[in-house]
Design a protein around this nucleic acid. Structure first.
Length: 270
DNA sequence: ACCTACCTGGCC
DNA sequence: GGCCAGGTAGGT
């Protein structure tokens, strides 16, 4: 589930809690979700969280000792804050004891989420970080247009490509195309300058709205304390295939693009 | 530009 | 039982 708005929502909630705290112990319940198990837990023990950052859908803790702990929620991961005495939730995969009886929990039904340690101060030397395009939220129109000029292929595929811009996924990609009034099946090369500028504004607007609504919650996403986001109520096309368009009432169409279900309105999007 | 694998769980 | 799901990586 988590795309940029959900990761940002998570980060805004968790950063103030974590910064300044020390990781007292780490319990890895799913070894395949971390790198270098079993030294992972040992390396983190006793490290203090100095800061937290995000780029696209990746977030990380800057730790004392010149380490960074990267977190990627992938499809169904989320963070939770629990008390030591609370009964563990059924899908807790990694637990961090952070003092004052508090436990930071990485909860992930599908276990596709990943946590890994990067040594040194530069997280961008990491292969997956190195491959990322600019963060979609802080992207200027000038840079967006410049990067778009060099690309070809199908619009929806490009929006999903994290090396183009980082942070857009299947939900916000479809929503951005709707807001821009552009058919997601279009070839990038055929987009007019007016459409390109509309697309830029639509991407930013869609992501900002997602953050404003504390993310989109279908089944898994929730904030630190289990409260779901509200953006699912504002979606125009995602998850609405064969339903009526909220603007023109035509039936929404859907197909697969880049192996992902894509929904659009044949009336509103040209 | 495809395809598959990684996993679990909900829904039909 | 089969299909679907917010993502990424690795292969051809």
């Amino acid at each position: 589930m988590p795309e940029l708005p959900e990761v940002e929502t998570t980060l805004r909630a968790v950063a103030p809690v974590l910064i300044g705290r020390t990781i007292e112990s780490v319990n890895v319940l799913r070894p395949n979700m971390v790198n270098n198990h079993p030294t992972f837990a040992k390396t983190l023990k006793g490290k203090t969280v100095l800061g937290m950052k995000r780029h696209g859908k990746y977030m990380w803790m800057e730790l004392s000792g010149g380490l960074n702990l990267m977190l990627h929620l992938r499809m169904s991961g989320r963070l939770g804050l629990r008390k030591l005495k609370d009964t563990p939730l059924s899908r807790e995969r990694i637990r961090f004891e952070i003092g004052n009886d508090l436990v930071l929990v990485f909860n992930d039904p599908r276990t596709l989420g990943r946590l890994w340690i990067i040594e040194g101060n530069d997280v961008y030397k990491d292969p997956s970080m190195k491959a990322l395009g600019p963060d979609a939220l802080t992207l200027t129109e000038e840079i967006f247009l410049e990067r778009l000029k060099k690309k070809r292929g199908t619009l929806k595929s490009l929006l999903l490509n994290q090396s183009f811009i980082a942070g857009v996924g299947n939900i916000y990609g479809d929503e951005a195309c709707f807001i821009a009034k552009i058919d997601p099946r279009r070839k990038v090369i055929g987009l007019s300058m007016i459409e390109r500028k509309r697309l830029y504004k639509a991407v930013i607007k869609t992501l900002e709205q997602g953050i404003y609504n504390s993310g989109t919650s279908f089944s898994d996403f929730a904030d630190l304390f289990g409260k779901p986001g509200q953006n699912q109520h504002s979606l125009m096309v995602y998850g609405r295939g064969k339903k009526n368009c909220r603007v023109c009432n035509m039936l929404l169409e859907s197909t697969k693009i880049a192996q992902r279900t894509t929904v659009w309105c044949p009336g509103c999007q040209k």
